[in-house]
Each structure stands twice: as structure tokens, then as C-alpha cells.
């Protein structure tokens, strides 16, 4: 599974500045936009917030995976961020989230991309993977956490 194609050094932050749920979503979207993977920040943000309205994507265990499917997305990818202080993301276990995966998918994503996303989602359920992510210092650490 070539998860490399989902991540990029340009879309990773190991020291997120945001303090609130909305701020962190904005910060991640900004990275995504600067990397040229997004055509319309507002449109995509609406899709992400709409998804959050269904129920929070803070899955607990310190992880949040905000995601959106929107035509403004250029190609399926993940924007990754770590917050040292943690951010209240209305998580299921009530604890702050430290690790963020912003998943962006266009309306007509290819199955290969969706398969990679499902692979990554599954991996997040494993304790050892999460531990490696918490300790990740750079791009390689993140990629290696999944392998």
C-alpha cells in the first residue's frame, strides 16, 4: 500500500498553533491550500464542518480525523498536524486531540485512493501505530508509523 502518495512534507506540521476546533481546521486547510491541493478554502471548510455536525470526528485516544468530500479538492490527500498542548475537539472520550488528519477527497475519487484512506483509518485503531504517531518528529516518522 503506497501511503506516501497521501502525505507530503508540505502538508505536515509538528507544532500546530491553533487553540480551538475551528482554528485547527482553518490551519490545516491553509496548509492544504498552499500546497495547491485545494481550489476553494471556504467551500471545503463548509464540507468539513457539515461532516462535524453529524458527529465529531474526534475519535478519542487523542486523535481527530476531520474530513470532507468536495468538488474544490484537487486530489485525495491527507494534511497532518500535531498539537503539543492538545485541542478540545468534542472528542468521544472528552479528552483533547493531539494528532490531526485532515482528509480531503474530491467528489469523484478513484478507488485506489479510497482504499489507501481506509487502510490508514484501520491502522489508527492500533495502539502501537498511535504511539509512533505521538512521538513523530518528521515526515519519515509519520510514514513509518503506518508501515
Amino acid at each position: 500500500m503506497d501511503i506516501n502518495m497521501m502525505f507530503s512534507k508540505e502538508r505536515m506540521s509538528f507544532d500546530l498553533k491553533a487553540r480551538t476546533k475551528e482554528e485547527v481546521i482553518d490551519e490545516l486547510i491553509e496548509m492544504l491550500y498552499k500546497d495547491g491541493k485545494l481550489k476553494d478554502k471556504e467551500s471545503f471548510k463548509r464540507a468539513v464542518l457539515k461532516r462535524e455536525d453529524e458527529f465529531s470526528t474526534g475519535i478519542g485516544m487523542g486523535i481527530a480525523i476531520p474530513h470532507g468530500k468536495d468538488s474544490s479538492v484537487v486530489e485525495p490527500c491527507i494534511t497532518f498536524g500535531i498539537s503539543k498542548n492538545g485541542i478540545d475537539f468534542d472528542s468521544m472520550d472528552g479528552k483533547p486531540a493531539h494528532i490531526f488528519f485532515l482528509i480531503s477527497v474530491p467528489e469523484d475519487a478513484a478507488d485506489t485512493h479510497l482504499h489507501i484512506l481506509s487502510f490508514i483509518s484501520r491502522k489508527l485503531m492500533h495502539e502501537d501505530v498511535r504511539q509512533k504517531l505521538f512521538n513523530a518528529k518528521d515526515f519519515e516518522d509519520v510514514i513509518n508509523a503506518f508501515n
Partner: peptide
Amino acid sequence: CPTGIAHTYMAAEALQI
């Protein structure tokens, strides 16, 4: 799950584990 991107698979994996 609604978007079918992440939670579907996380839940599946969690149940399997």
C-alpha cells in the same frame, strides 16, 4: 458512516481487534 471515508473502516478494525 455518512461519508464512508474513515469511520467505516476504523469501526471495522476496532471490532476486529
